[in-house]
Design a protein around this nucleic acid. Structure first.
Lengths: 257, 257
DNA sequence: ATATCTGTTCCCGCCTCGGGAACGTGGCTG
DNA sequence: CAGCCACGTTCCCGAGGCGGGAACAGATAT
């Protein structure tokens, strides 16, 4: 883990931190019990016990066999979150249909805390496996979604995000500094779409188009595939067209909300 | 809210309770700020402030405009939860295809804390609108999913759940007591599927079939529709066949996991 | 300019919460 | 069957975390 960047000062509450450490742990590994959790987090069993009781009462975790797992309540929360984002169904529909049409991976992402979070993902028939998962975050400088969203954010927010950025080279092509990034953003604004040329994962290329609502950017939609199928020509040609028209459809449907 | 039934004694941690009260509040109403939350929960602003800081650092909530909403991290958590349940993709696929085939509402539910929780839901073309939502809970005695799952749980667990049950009549047909419930469970075990004849919501009927793995029940799959289309004959005939064969497909695919 | 919202910060004192240790229990081993 | 160990649970204590009140700071509207 890298040192967390979003650290505004202010007081933070220890018990709540512990509670979420437990949740994080159970997210990674289900079915463990008091002792194991206590060990893992470096707390006494009694402490962990009280927390588990609390979380259990809240339906956050569930006792199953001997051990705990996260509760189904999270499914409910997630569905509320999607509703709050707004227009999720339209995004979902469009992403799904583009994935089916092209057979590749199609994703929709938004900016959160200076990173890209995937809101929805669909994979077509001959899609490559990727690790990305709905709700997880990726850096903005190494993904086409990230760069595209960034390009259309308000200038002051771009500055803010760029200032907090730590450029970690993920492949040989990854953008490594601000000058390079700003140039890229300019290019994206000119051509109206963004490219990831094996900058995040070796062998994978993407194109993204921004989805805006009245000049404010909502997110971006991308299509991902292996470099073998995603040649320069196709990237800038038909594939770019695909994402731009999908973005357009979403924009039209969200206009009057 | 009825008095929470799952109250095992043991100490519970106040700060964590407060944190989840905030989360619950934001789930219902996004975009509110410190003052409003403090009012609503009856805490001081400083208290709420510290909590918001903590939750923000944890990516649980996000500041948006002036106000907070739940973070996309919940989408990630939810997807982990589904994975932990196991065989979610198979369930999803089967539920979706049955919904498309019949055009009605199809759901898959499991037992959690003595209630039914919906794991997945799909609605076909001419499906009625219902309030049920993925992750939410319903009583076991008034739904076909609940009764069907209950019927196949181990006897001692049935006792346990039934003992804690509070029978609240949702419609004129709702089961109102243990004798009636146990008789119904017996019927379900005999015929291999469960019926909800407007017992939960007026005008709606359902059929459910159990999904088992080696004699232990995993959950149940149901189909729901208006009484006008769901006649006695169809319920016990083709509709029951539908859910039973879908349940069968799921069972076959989960057998070797 | 004044008033009134908001979010933030700073303390203080009570009481909560984390920890250690003891207890109860079930499962495995000899 | 006795013994042991691992587990979850309970009890109690003392330190310090946490909730609250009040003062401060910005923003917006009047």
């Amino acid at each position: 883990m890298s040192p967390q960047p979003n650290k505004r000062p202010g007081r933070t509450i220890r018990s709540v931190q512990i509670a979420f450490n437990i949740i994080d742990l159970l997210q990674e590994e289900a079915g463990i019990g008091v002792t194991r959790i206590a060990d893992e987090l470096g707390h006494s069993k009694s402490t962990v016990h009280s927390h588990l009781r609390t979380l259990e009462e809240r339906r956050v975790i569930v006792r199953e066999g001997d051990g705990y797992r996260l509760g189904l309540r999270f499914l409910d929360v997630a569905s509320h979150v999607r509703d709050q984002i707004g227009n999720f169904d339209i995004v979902q529909k469009e992403v799904d249909s583009l994935a089916e049409e092209t057979g590749e991976i199609v994703q929709f992402g938004v900016e959160e805390y200076g990173k890209v979070s995937y809101l929805h993902k669909a994979q077509g028939e001959h899609a490559v496996e990727t690790l990305s998962r709905v709700g997880t975050q990726q850096p903005m400088y190494s993904t086409s979604l990230g760069k595209t969203i960034l390009a259309y954010l308000p200038p002051e927010r771009i500055e803010e995000i760029a200032a907090a950025m730590e450029y970690e080279p993920k492949t040989a092509n990854t953008i490594t500094g601000p000058e390079e990034l700003f140039a890229e953003l300019e290019t994206i604004r000119e051509q109206g779409y963004g490219i990831d040329d094996e900058e995040n994962i070796d062998g994978l290329r993407c194109v993204s188009a921004p989805v805006k609502n009245d000049e404010t950017i909502l997110g971006a939609i991308s299509i991902t595939g292996p470099s073998s199928r995603f040649t320069e020509d196709r990237l800038h040609g038909e594939l770019a067209d695909y994402v731009r028209s999908a973005a357009n459809v979403i924009e039209l449907n969200t206009k009057f909300s």
